[in-house]
Simulated scan of single mutants.
Amino acid sequence: MAHENKTALLDPNSWDLQLTPEGNILLTSGNLAIAQNLANEIRLWTNDAYFQQENGINWKEAQLAKSLDTTVLSQVIREAGNRTQGVQSVDSVTVTEFDEENRILHGEITITTELQETLTFNF
């Protein structure tokens, strides 16, 4: 039987850990874990994760103090997806909200996982 990676289950609205009634951290695996890890990779700045400094996107180099370019943003997010464990391919990245003044970015990403399932979710 192949090893299946597990990750802490996060609340999609608050990004907080989910706990059992006993106070234990809930875990998730499979496609939900892959999608959640990719969402985390997109949201994280490099050097933010204490034990995994290389994870995340170097947003400072990519876009900080520059005019935002949706093509560049889409490519940076695609690259983050391609290096996320469990992602076989990034099929599309679409920027759906782009507020340069307030530096707000939302979009939709479609991936194919190593489990051969296609997932689409918002970031």
Rank of each mutant, 00 (worst) to 15 (best):
L32H: 13
R78T: 15
G86V: 04
N40Q: 15
A39I: 10
G81F: 07
N58M: 00
G23D: 07
Q75H: 12
T71R: 10
T28S: 02
S29T: 13
S67C: 01
I57N: 02
I25M: 09
I34V: 15
I42M: 08
I42C: 06
E79C: 01
E79T: 06
Q52F: 14
G86A: 03
A65Y: 09
Q53T: 12
D69N: 15
T70Y: 06
A65T: 04
I34F: 12
K60V: 03
K60A: 01
R78I: 09
A49Y: 13
N24G: 04
G30A: 02
N58L: 00
Q63G: 00
A35M: 13
A80M: 04
S67M: 10
R43K: 15
T28L: 05
L68N: 07
S29H: 13
N47M: 11
Q63K: 00
L26Q: 13
Y50H: 11
A65L: 09
N31A: 10
L27R: 03
V72M: 10
K60W: 01
A62S: 11
E79K: 05
D69I: 08
S74Q: 12
I25S: 02
L38K: 01
L32G: 00
A49S: 15
R43Q: 15
K60E: 04
L68D: 01
T46D: 02
D69Y: 09
G86E: 03
T71A: 11
Q63E: 05
L32T: 09
T71F: 12
L32C: 01
L73I: 15
Q53A: 12
F51L: 14
E41Y: 06
A33G: 05
N58H: 05
K66M: 09
F51E: 05
A62H: 04
I34S: 04
A65Q: 08
G86C: 05
E79R: 04
R43P: 11
I25F: 14
A35T: 12
I57C: 01
T84I: 10
T84F: 11
L26E: 13
F51P: 04
N24H: 12
D69E: 12
S67H: 12
L44M: 14
S67D: 14
Q36V: 04
Q53M: 12
N31D: 15
N58V: 00
W45P: 00
T28V: 14
A39H: 12
S74K: 10
E41W: 06
S29Q: 14
T46P: 00
G81C: 09
K60G: 03
A62F: 06
L64P: 00
V76T: 10
L73V: 08
Q53Y: 09
Y50A: 09
G86D: 01
L38D: 01
A62C: 04
I77D: 02
Q52W: 13
T70N: 09
I57D: 01
E22P: 00
N82H: 11
E79Y: 04
E79N: 10
N82Y: 09
N24A: 12
N55H: 12
D48Y: 08
N82A: 05
R78K: 15
R83E: 10
A33W: 01
S67E: 13
R78D: 11
I25T: 12
V76A: 06
N55Q: 13
E41F: 06
L38M: 11
